[in-house]
Design a protein around this nucleic acid. Sequence first.
DNA 1: TTGTACGCGTTATCAC
DNA 2: GTGATAACGCGTACAA
Lengths: 328, 328
Amino acid sequence: MRDVARTAGVSIATVSRFVNGVQRFTESTEQRLRDAIDTLGFSVDPLARSMITGRTNTIAVVILDIRNPHFTGIVKGANRKAQQLGYNLLFVDTGERLSAEGDMLRDLSRRVDGLIVSSRMPDAALSTLRDLDKPVVFFGRASQHGVHSVSADGRAAAIMLARHLLDLGHRRIAYLGYPGARWDGERRAGLVETVKKAGCEALLFNAESPTLEAGEKAVGEVLMGEARPDAVVCFNDMLALGFMKQAQAAGIRIPEQVSVAGFDDIPFARFSSPTLTTVDMQSEAMGELALSRLVELIDGSLDASEERLSPRLMLRQSTARKDSNGQY
Amino acid sequence: MRDVARTAGVSIATVSRFVNGVQRFTESTEQRLRDAIDTLGFSVDPLARSMITGRTNTIAVVILDIRNPHFTGIVKGANRKAQQLGYNLLFVDTGERLSAEGDMLRDLSRRVDGLIVSSRMPDAALSTLRDLDKPVVFFGRASQHGVHSVSADGRAAAIMLARHLLDLGHRRIAYLGYPGARWDGERRAGLVETVKKAGCEALLFNAESPTLEAGEKAVGEVLMGEARPDAVVCFNDMLALGFMKQAQAAGIRIPEQVSVAGFDDIPFARFSSPTLTTVDMQSEAMGELALSRLVELIDGSLDASEERLSPRLMLRQSTARKDSNGQY
DNA sequence: TTGTACGCGTTATCAC
DNA sequence: GTGATAACGCGTACAA
């Protein structure tokens, strides 16, 4: 910047004002500035600027596993909005671990203007987020801790799914959950409650991770018992796709013998055989919204609150009326 | 830091040396420093440090579309290695566009110590990367431009697939490519060449994007012509999965009537019906390797060169010997 | 409209 | 082992 100033025959301050476009200049000064900047190939050092302004124009995005298309969608949406608003994304995939997560967040928070966080941390630890002293948007309810939150309504989604299955005539409805996940609770509750209202009892199972592989593994426990369920709702689409595949490999016809459904509406849900009935949990919209809101928080034009998106039921082939050829 | 120095009764320089652990101190100084830092909750400002050291401990990762599991794998691998080596990741999904890509890269390069780049930019534009004046690892051949590159051998991969299909007795082998992609050329070449050696002619088609949807769309053109191919190799697994789904919807049995194969070995390739024969292009390993090499370049302990990983053929159900019930 | 001078929070260099 | 102090490259009062 000093070189530019010297070359253009002006002061450093003038160069700064010019590159920040805060003012108009006399024709000649402006021309000389343009030339000097061009020939010297000058561009502002973002670090030095950040030091003085206190803003980095960077937002941290912390997610659990980028291989899960739900998170992929979130990142895709956040990235799109970030480009529109002129922000950079600092990406962290925690790999579902939460050891030393606090330290990581503290480190991160010093490099960014705000954070978008997805985490399995217990509610009690949410105060950690507020203590970062930087705006945070959390995926999951957290407004009581002074943290803005964005999520899709898992209870409503589960109720939609349960009603759909009950309408199809299913009575033995199973839920293959993943207790480690933040959203497992409300999905499970919505399902159990709705099924119970219909005079049935939900069968509850747990997967060991929210993955395709865990879905495969769970088939034995869920379907090979004495009283096979006639519908299985999985915590997410990954579990559901893995489950369907393995069930079919075991000779079980879907949906004739067992209906299967999931949550998220990942792109592949439309390309499995049969195609997967699921609930669109608005992953990309969540990512976009989270980023927009975070920027508003940073600008101080918003107070922390709790926002919920409406899920959409996606009916496909994996759920159907019980077949007379089925086991029941 | 000034506050810490005052509280501990030492100079600023001493605090700096302490937090950087470059020296030993007298017992009492060390104790006072610990206390002061604790009570004040001090931690170093990474920006100020970067200004003076010239290193940000951040690496940019620029990819085309995070929804494509190939790139998801790259990011997963890069993220893992980055955490091991103490680097942060600045993430950019360009969305397959390359307008203003140059500016974006220039901006980015000022915030990071190095860049990992995947791009559709023409070879002639690769000099852009060298002009960034920061170490770069590129996915695709680029060493002639002074840029380190990492990739899986697409030609070898295509040859493996072609031989496999020829061994199965297929003679009418089609390639559904995506000319926009950097890898398309060598995959196509390997296939065409191998098929030709066997005395056959490859049938060539182009998809409009490397996605599930484009795979669906391509079925009409590829399979509904007069002379239907008995095997179709798709540019990637996304195309292949979309293609299979739509072909089946059109009443075509896979692999009995047509064999289908792809590239990448994305996780879902093992969960489609039929499971997809493909070639593992080592996405995660590429991400890890790219990051490791970039750090070596940053440290100056490596010269730019060209590295290729070996693909692995993954035989599954979507390719099989021609059925006597088939059309031919 | 333009220039001067200070400060942002560190690390590095030199003394002691 | 420890302390002064000069950078690092900017933004911004304040004065002109």
